[in-house]
Nucleic acid binder design. Structure first.
Length: 253
DNA sequence: GGTGCCGGGAA
DNA sequence: TTCCCGGCACC
């Protein structure tokens, strides 16, 4: 488990560094007007530096992403992941354009659907064997980096992130017999059941002889939950929900 | 009898 | 809010 997390952790940190730079650099830029921004291509083997983000994006798009200059369809800001801003101490304050370009990376920031690996909240808190996640789970900050569901799909680094997203969940269970409990943007069956019950005027009827009505209150999932996977002796490895005898948050259907 | 988890209570 | 558990449905 440890190595799994570690590998992914490195990815995450790399990723976060790259994106956080944009944010951390930004305030400086506003205060120190004599700093000049340059844009350096970070694509492996390429260190081209340009004056404007437009040109670096163009460069990345054409030279590394294989797109044409007018190929906007697959350039949802993904060029940004191949260049970085660097500051040059020059007395030149005419950087408005570049500021406009860089200060708002494709802010299509949409809350990634709540479910994409909604990290176990217990992971975010204290789980000792998932401390890495606690520190680097890209909860809100992650999405504030301008990562969007759309940009999620293409750029390689986003793919890394994706792989982390899913691997983070695969990582915990010691058994390999399980399909990864990847969460997608849909409610769990129980949530759906509850929603349905809440919305249905007959919601209270399910408790009346469910066997005769054929409506089962809680069709049991075939997914093995923490209790079954880890066993009672490894209760500390259960997700918090299971520890609390709540609906498992780690192994959802 | 084991499992999953709702409902509710204690801290 | 976090944590825990009684109790019930399901298997």
């Amino acid at each position: 488990v440890g190595s799994f997390h570690k590998d992914d952790g490195i990815d995450i940190e790399d990723f976060e560094d790259e994106t956080i730079d944009v944010d951390t650099v930004e305030p400086k830029r506003k205060r120190q007007t004599h700093l000049r921004l340059r844009y350096q291509c970070t694509f492996p083997g390429c260190s081209l530096v340009t004056d404007t983000c437009a040109s670096i994006e163009k460069h990345v798009r054409t030279a590394h992403l294989g797109g044409s200059e007018s190929d906007d369809s697959r350039s949802d800001g993904e060029e940004e992941f191949y260049y970085t801003e660097i500051e040059v101490n020059v007395d030149n304050v005419t950087q408005k354009f570049s500021e406009m370009c860089t200060s708002s990376p494709p802010e299509v920031v949409g809350p990634l659907s709540p479910s994409i690996p909604v990290p176990d909240h217990d992971y975010q808190k204290k789980d000792h064997n998932t401390k890495f996640q606690a520190s680097s789970v890209p909860s809100s900050g992650f999405f504030h980096q301008g990562i969007t569901p759309m940009s999620f799909s293409n750029p390689p680094q986003m793919k890394r992130s994706m792989s982390w997203q899913s691997s983070a969940h695969v990582s915990s269970p010691p058994t390999h017999s399980l399909s990864p409990p990847i969460r997608v943007t849909k409610p769990t069956p129980q949530e759906r059941l509850h929603q349905h019950q809440a919305q249905s005027p007959k919601s209270h009827l399910y408790s009346v002889s469910p066997k005769t009505t054929g409506f089962h209150k809680k069709p049991r999932s075939e997914v093995r939950k923490c209790r079954k996977v880890y066993g009672m002796e490894n209760r500390d490895q259960w997700c918090t929900q299971c520890k609390w005898k709540k609906a498992c948050s780690r192994f959802v259907d």
